[in-house]
Simulated assay, not measured.
Amino acid sequence: MATLKLEIVTPDRKVLSEDVEYVGAPGIMGEFGVLPNHVPFLSALGIGNLHYKQDGKAHYVFVSGGFAEVSNNQVTVLAEVAEKATEIDVDRASKAKERAEQRATAAKEKIESIRNQAALKRAISRINCKNSGKNAGTC
């Protein structure tokens, strides 16, 4: 079966470098999917869960911001933040979600509200990523 090389890096570390069968990622304009021999393209990333298939099993990585480049059967993700589902601390993410929800109710300025919405989305996406991996039993 044809594969893609998936590399995920952040400013701090290389998160992943694997041969995979499929990559789905949260683009800024919506989720996109990549199979082998995909046309080259570049997309900004939103906040959400990147998923990939390897040996027929789904795996999950939380990503927040950055870019994805597809070229020559390689997907390179340059993310501001990226965490494998197995690395996510659900208690910490739940506390961040609670803080963001509390700030959202108290937010008075529009910019404050936007920051809180982004923090809330990051926390919820981390929790969902961890739970997706747990439910699939593959992380």
Rank of each mutant, 00 (worst) to 15 (best):
D19M: 11
N73R: 03
A25G: 00
Y52F: 15
S125H: 03
R99A: 07
K134H: 14
T76F: 07
L6P: 00
L50W: 02
S64Q: 06
A104P: 06
K95N: 14
T10N: 08
A44Q: 10
T138D: 03
E112R: 03
V63S: 00
D91P: 05
L4G: 00
S132I: 03
G65I: 11
A119V: 10
L4V: 06
R99C: 03
D89E: 07
I114N: 04
H59D: 03
V20S: 11
H51C: 10
H51S: 14
A79K: 10
L45A: 01
L16R: 09
A58G: 06
V34R: 02
P40H: 08
I127N: 01
N37Q: 15
T86I: 05
F67I: 12
V34F: 09
P36N: 11
C139L: 10
V20E: 09
Y60S: 02
A25L: 01
K53F: 08
L42V: 12
L50F: 07
L42I: 12
R126A: 04
Y60G: 02
E109H: 11
E98H: 14
S94Q: 15
A58N: 09
A107G: 07
H51T: 11
L16H: 04
D12A: 15
H59K: 07
K134T: 10
L35Y: 13
K130P: 01
Q74S: 14
V23R: 02
I111L: 12
D12Y: 15
K5V: 07
M29W: 10
L42N: 03
V20K: 12
E69C: 05
E101Y: 06
A44H: 08
M1T: 15
A79V: 13
I47Y: 00
V15Q: 01
A96T: 06
V15P: 00
R103N: 12
C139E: 09
A106L: 14
L42Y: 04
K14W: 04
K97Y: 08
N72Q: 07
A44C: 09
A123C: 13
E83I: 06
I127W: 05
P36M: 11
E83Y: 05
A58H: 09
A2K: 14
T86V: 07
M1D: 14
K121A: 11
A82P: 00
N135E: 11
V70E: 06
K97W: 06
I88P: 03
V61C: 04
F62I: 03
A136R: 02
D19A: 13
P26T: 04
V39G: 08
V9N: 09
V20A: 12
E18M: 13
T3C: 06
F67H: 11
T138N: 12
N49T: 14
Q117S: 07
G66C: 10
N73C: 02
E7S: 13
A123H: 09
C129R: 01
A44T: 12
N131F: 10
